[in-house]
Structure formats: structure tokens, C-alpha cells
């Protein structure tokens, strides 16, 4: 149970936090998506790293191989990467549309614009 033996976990956790922090702290919509990407990538690591055994080989059944790596996480993560790419693509497409509609990709500015547009009156006082 040394730091080194859990190296991959530490990296995973660090990347998760970095990703989340970028989403939290940046106002630029694209940078937020980058943060999201890092966040997702960290998860890929979480899956793949434990699957790899030191000295293990590809899972081909044969007499000479006794130790082989678990192939399932790789397959899973392939799927997850596809999902991640789709998400990122959609997110970027949305940012393009937002830029067209608002002329900005800064979230604070956009929300300010929305608040200014919101001309509907405050609700009247309620009694009872």
C-alpha cells in the first residue's frame, strides 16, 4: 500500500478534480468543455489501469501464456470514448450556435444578457 502502487488512482483522482475545477472556474464555454473532457478521460484511466497486469499479454488463449490482461475494460472504454466524443462534438456545436445567437461564449455575459432581456414583470404581491 504505497503511494507508488496506487499511482494510477492518484492520477485518476487528480485528473477528475482538475477537470471538475476547470468546469467550475472557467467562464469560457469551450474551456468548460475541455475541462469536461479531462474529467471524462480520467475515468478511462480508472478503468484501464487496473486491467493491465505487469507481465501480462494480450488475452489470446494458448499454452505458452499463463498471465494475460483483462480485455473487458478496454472494450468498455472504447465505448466510453465514443460517447465522450459525441458529447464533446455536441457541446461544441451548441457553443457555435450560442455564439451565433448571443455573440459571446462567456457564460457570465450570456446570463447577464438573458437577465436583461427578461422584461416580464415581477409578480404582484400576494395576499392570503
Amino acid at each position: 500500500m504505497t503511494l507508488a502502487s496506487h499511482f494510477s488512482y492518484w492520477v485518476t483522482v487528480l485528473l477528475l478534480m482538475v477537470g471538475l475545477f476547470i468546469v467550475m472556474a472557467r467562464e469560457n464555454l469551450i474551456k468548460k468543455l475541455i475541462g469536461l473532457g479531462i474529467f471524462q478521460t480520467a475515468v478511462y484511466l480508472l478503468y484501464i489501469a487496473p486491467g493491465k497486469l505487469i507481465g501480462g499479454v494480450a488475452p489470446i488463449v494458448g499454452g505458452q501464456f499463463a498471465v494475460y490482461s483483462n480485455p473487458l475494460p478496454h472494450v468498455l472504454i472504447l465505448t466510453a470514448i465514443v460517447v465522450g466524443v459525441a458529447t464533446l462534438a455536441l457541446g461544441l456545436a451548441l457553443v457555435v450556435r450560442i455564439k451565433e445567437a448571443y455573440g459571446s461564449i462567456d457564460e457570465d455575459e450570456i446570463l447577464l444578457m438573458d437577465a436583461r432581456d427578461d422584461t416580464s414583470p415581477e409578480p404582484e404581491a400576494k395576499d392570503g
Binding site: L36, F39, Q40, L94, V95, A101, D114
Partner: peptide
């Protein structure tokens, strides 16, 4: 146009949730 921002925000939150 606010639908775009709503979708974007939902995308961020939804992806984080799923992740």
C-alpha cells in the same frame, strides 16, 4: 435562444452525472 444555454448547461451537468 435561451434554449441553447439551457441545453449546454444540461449537457455539462448530465455528462458530469453520467461520468
Amino acid at each position: 435562444r435561451r434554449a441553447l444555454v439551457a441545453a449546454y448547461q444540461y449537457l455539462l451537468m448530465g455528462t458530469i452525472g453520467a461520468t
